[in-house]
Design a protein around this nucleic acid. Structure first.
Lengths: 199, 199
DNA sequence: CAGGTTTTAGAGGTATCTCTCTAAATACAC
DNA sequence: GTGTATTTAGAGAGATACCTCTAAAACCTG
């Protein structure tokens, strides 16, 4: 049918992830991505309509790579193990995919969300509501009743592992293994019913 | 002695904070700062040797504005109230200074730390070790013994309030008042000795 | 091998940003 | 008032980024 592609979309996105992890969103220029894989800039524009389109795919692909494992961890039948598994998944995924995890440290806004194609904006919203919905129902399965209880589950399952992991990643160092235990303790302590007393 | 200055350093930094809060570090260009206060670009270069110098002062001033209150909250004699006050301070400060708080969401690296003047780099390191040292001694005063216990206090006093506040700020919405209570509960639950059981 | 489609390849226009440099304006000291 | 140090004011050079556009190359189908 046609000439085979030498620089595929996923190759370019891989390069973009590396650049973003090292130099932040500003480092993801079309020229830098092209240079990073040895392609001329025209090849990048052949795959992505413009820079916002590339950035949106970069963000959405990375987010989905993380969320898919997170969501399947939440599907465990026992709600408490679901919560613990999800929290641990965040740590393990970040440990195993440091560059991608460093991308998620930022915000869609930092990746020019305002200029994304409409479809990308909707996809992002869908992904976010899907995760928040899953955590919400988890909170109810855990017996959370009020607004504050639900918030507390969100902190336990999302914010604490995320914060602990990012603190290490942002220094460029890998995620130490003891973080897994710290997160497990903190999450357990914050879930309804509490954890073993701290000391 | 001389002509009075029309665009002071702090005016320019104020504008830079606004720009960074709205558009991220990339939006803080010398031209944008100048335009934001109605000055020609030359006036900005008269105050700051170059862009890294401006960014370093932007970061250090903002960090110090936050840390001074945080550190004085930690000085309370009763260690548990010190921890709770420090956690609450983070929430209140972010609520009252949303633009500055949104700046602190980023990393010195995002503000070109690699090109900062030496002196600024040292000041940053000093500020960080000062805070981590204070939290470290707080952890000991709270009876923390092992590595994991200390980490847990850091999570309770720093990471949890920071994460909860940033989750709201990054959507552009102000910090809701109920966050103060959520943070207080989570921090209490994570401190040695625990909090009231969740439910 | 011929036709058609996709992709590479990169030159170049336009815009923007950083930073330098000169000249003029200002206000205080004497 | 005069001198002087500081600041404003902005033009312009050099670099870089985004994006467009044209031409050629490569491969599959028939």
């Amino acid at each position: 049918m046609a000439r085979p592609s030498r620089y595929g979309a996923s190759d370019l996105l891989d390069a973009a992830v590396r650049l973003a992890a090292e130099g932040g969103p500003a480092a993801v220029t079309m020229a830098a991505v092209a240079k990073s894989v040895g392609a001329p800039s025209g090849s990048v524009y052949h795959r992505f309509a413009d820079r916002p389109a590339l950035l949106s795919e970069l963000w959405l692909r990375t987010l989905d790579n993380f969320q898919s494992g997170f969501l399947s961890a939440l599907e465990s039948t026992a709600p408490r193990t679901a919560a613990m598994d999800a929290a641990r998944h965040t740590v393990c995924w970040a440990r195993d995919h440091p560059a991608e995890a460093r991308v998620l440290r930022y915000n869609p806004r930092d990746f020019e969300q305002a200029r994304w194609p409409q479809e990308a904006g909707r996809a992002l919203q869908a992904a976010n509501t899907r995760v928040y919905g899953a955590v919400h129902t988890l909170a109810h399965r855990l017996g959370a009743t009020g607004q504050v209880d639900v918030e507390r589950v969100v902190v336990a399952v999302i914010d604490v592992p995320y914060a602990l992991v990012q603190r290490h990643l942002q220094e460029g160092s890998p995620v130490p293994s003891h973080v897994l235990e710290t997160v497990a303790q903190c999450t357990a302590a914050l879930l309804p019913g509490g954890g073993e007393p701290p000391s």
